[in-house]
Amino acid sequence: MKTRFNIVMPVCGVLAVLSYQGCSSPAGGSAVNPTVVNPTVVSPSVVNPSVVSPTVVSPAVVSPTVVNPTVVNPTVVNPTVVRPTALAASSMPPYFEPAASGVKAPGPDGFLQRWLLLEPIPQSIRSNAVFTESYIRNAIGTEYFPNQFTVVPRDGDKVKIGDEESVWHALDSNGFNVKLFRFAEAMNKPTYSILFWVVTIVDSPREIHDVRMAVGSNSASMWWLNGQEAVSLFGDRRMVMDDCVSKRLTIKKGRNIIRGAVINGPGLSDFCLRFIDEAGEPIKDITLNLDTI
């Protein structure tokens, strides 16, 4: 028996497209073009990607390489101010610890366990059955805060989304998977019907060719490496390691930016991400260092 979630949300439009578990791995990656953002389009106070009807835009006609953002009240609250993360310390363990200074190696199986997590952005999702590719691209492509596809935040940075402030938190996940549900719960934020933005920085001592970004997420998600869309997970998904992987990518020598967005209706949001080589083995000679921001 499927868990029945105690949430009441407005009814979405009638579905015409079944949400299935497809992956997208654009060949060579696709750039997010921040110039596409239309700063004059403002939808005050309401962040509601469900108003973009998944029945209107066929997945077949949505370019997999273009994110089409819609600006939603792009007010920034002093993004340059660094504030310490005000974690509810008692509720974060055993899932997270504040990110320590210095570098952090990937976990034993190569999973990246140090991330900047933005407090969740409320959505209007009654059922994950709506998670078609077009729905996800519209929901994640909506611009909720300025430079959301390029910003490299610091711990404690705030952004304003509608009337709400959301804070970035630098955290180390104690498990291979980053339990976003528990993060939201600890922040006293909504745990269902939400969108998470996450960023991390990978330092590599060398240029590494022919690697793949391997992701599992609950539920749908999109991921970028150095501004290029790497892999996207559509449909109502469960977090399974290496569920969807990118085309072959190159990790640059030096700093690499990984950005992701995970969306969920009723569900236990989380994700896991690592890089794997041609043989499917994890890339582990890289480090995570949020101090470099």
């Binding site: 029945r4 579905l15 949400s19 578990q21 994950n128 059955a129 469960r238």
Partner: peptide, 12 residues
């Protein structure tokens, strides 16, 4: 059992 329950013909 993996997948989505209770969505009739859309259950995965």
């Amino acid at each position: 059992t993996h997948g989505t329950c209770c969505s009739s013909a859309n259950s995965t």
